[in-house]
């Protein structure tokens, strides 16, 4: 499954879970009146500790009881065979942003894959926010060692698409 197809599959998966899809780069803000999902590219090295510049972001508002399970199933939908990998959930307590509750820095085979946080508004039910490194997921799903060799779409590679860009 190439990078582009992985994004399609994540879009379809989260849309089936009732998320409204955001256009690329759309700003999903906590406290939104609906569950939202979408991929976005970020310039420069992001400060969230995740690898690469492409993120898949999901806001579940409110968070269903099965939010973690939905996240795990989304990885399978994106081509990851869970049984072949080690997933760890090192926990953190409340995040730095107002309303950001506890969560986990999810590690895939020891490397940062995603950040899953609960959102705890002053009133109303808890939400959940998931930030996923698309590069990390694609590297595992495509069994590649470096991002440049990832298949982006058909024969076009990630490296060819981003040739000449500053890191």
């Amino acid at each position: 499954m190439d990078f582009q197809d992985m994004i399609f599959r994540l879009d379809r998966y989260w849309a089936r879970q009732g998320c409204a899809l955001l256009p690329p780069g759309g700003a999903a803000r906590p406290g939104a009146p609906a569950s939202l999902a979408g991929a976005a590219g970020r310039r420069g090295l992001p400060p969230d500790g995740l690898e690469g510049v492409y993120r898949y972001r999901v806001l579940l508002s409110p968070a269903p009881a099965a939010a973690r399970r939905l996240f795990l199933d989304s990885l399978r939908a994106a081509g990851l065979d869970r049984s072949e990998h080690d997933l760890r959930w090192p926990a953190f307590e409340d995040g730095p942003r107002a309303g950001a509750g506890p969560g986990w820095d999810v590690l895939l085979d020891g490397l940062p894959l995603a950040r899953f946080s609960y959102l705890l508004p002053a009133s109303g039910p808890a939400g959940a926010e998931i930030e996923l490194s698309l590069e990390r997921l694609a590297l595992a799903a495509q069994r590649r060692k470096d991002a440049a060799s990832l298949a982006w779409a058909g024969r076009l590679t990630y490296g060819e698409l981003h040739a000449g860009e500053a890191a």
Partner: peptide, 20 residues
């Protein structure tokens, strides 16, 4: 090191841990 759960795909885990 230790991974959590079944031992299928051991090589992927070894490589990931090494990269970490």
């Amino acid at each position: 090191a230790f991974r959590d759960g079944v031992s299928k795909g051991q090589r992927e885990v070894e490589e990931g841990f090494r990269a970490a």
